[in-house]
Design a protein around this nucleic acid. Structure first.
Length: 293
DNA sequence: TCCCAGGGCTTGT
DNA sequence: ACAAGCCATGGG
């Protein structure tokens, strides 16, 4: 990997498989917005403008000391071309890869991902973004960069100060008590670190002990924060695709989950992201919709 | 087993 | 303009 640093900017020369829209509008992250060039957003306590230009990836502001953070966050060391080749044996995934060819799975902070995806339950992206933004503004640390003031995602110690009423005022609705209870569990010593070292099925059971975390939210956290490739988040759209194309209308969550691992193995979560991006953008395939009527 | 609980956006009238 | 539908999880 060749990286040039100049004018407070990191430039990764010849970055492959990277399209800002595919990455930041695939439902995995809620703090990035379209900017003049690419997207600008906050991850943890760092903000950056991230954009592709002439085949190079630009990260601004970013110097040598911050670059390893973004390299890890943006999963730059994973070869997505190879993964796409591996997954292309399946026709629907292959078609989906054509639409979302520049998708990558971000490696986000576990606590931030946990809180964000509890909020995501039974909710739409715009509202989720608003709730998270208000929580960060109220409880996160204020920071300044060349774009102005922004707010870091609050730490567990900062967010323990938020009451159920505070979360309601941020717009969290009936998820407010789940948030308050889960933040308390983390502060009381629930260990988010060990999750990453566990077997997938044990990790999934463990994270579901937290209030507001069911099987779908658990898979989102395991995939987007810990990089468990076999986590296959079954939201309503992926359920529809999985039922329509691969299984039957009445199959259970367990059957779909087992199917995904048998079919895509360690790459199930990445296959899910390509399919999710495709189905959200283009809807279910026409033949499938006819079948369902 | 089924039903209900914010609320903002999307889709249909 | 206005109403109905959408949505993961926990609790009754």
């Amino acid at each position: 990997m060749k990286v040039v640093f100049k004018n407070k900017e990191a430039i990764v020369i010849g970055q492959k498989d990277f399209e800002e829209q595919h990455i930041f509008e695939s439902g995995q992250v809620f703090r990035f917005l379209p900017a003049e060039k690419g997207y600008i957003g906050v991850a943890g306590d760092k903000r950056a403008n991230i954009y592709m230009q002439d085949g190079n990836l630009h990260i601004f502001p970013c110097d040598e000391s911050i670059f390893p953070f973004w390299r890890d966050y943006l999963d730059l060391d994973t070869d997505y071309t190879a993964i796409k080749d591996t997954l292309s044996f399946d026709d629907y995934v292959k078609e989906s890869i054509n639409y979302g060819s520049g998708l990558r799975i971000l490696k986000q902070d576990p606590f931030e991902t946990l809180i964000s995806f509890i909020i995501s339950a039974n909710n739409n992206v715009k509202r989720i973004m608003g709730i998270i933004d208000r929580i960060c503004t109220a409880f996160g640390e204020a920071k300044n960069d060349t774009f102005g003031t922004y707010y870091a995602f609050p730490t567990p110690a900062e967010l323990i100060k938020a009451s159920v009423q505070d979360f309601i005022e941020c717009g969290a609705g009936y998820r407010a008590p789940y948030l308050a209870q889960t933040v308390k569990s983390i502060n009381d010593g629930f260990d988010l670190e060990v999750i990453g070292e566990m077997e997938y099925s044990d990790a999934k059971k463990k994270i579901q002990q937290l209030h507001g975390v069911g099987p779908k939210v658990a898979d989102c956290i395991l995939l987007f924060a810990y990089g468990f490739g076999q986590a296959y988040p079954l939201d309503v759209w992926v359920k529809r695709v999985t039922r329509s194309i691969y299984l039957q209308d009445d199959c259970s969550l367990k059957e779909m989950s087992e199917f995904s691992y048998n079919k895509f193995g360690e790459y199930a979560g990445i296959a899910q992201q390509y399919m999710f991006f495709n189905v959200r953008k283009n809807g279910l395939p026409e033949t499938i919709e006819l079948d369902r009527k």
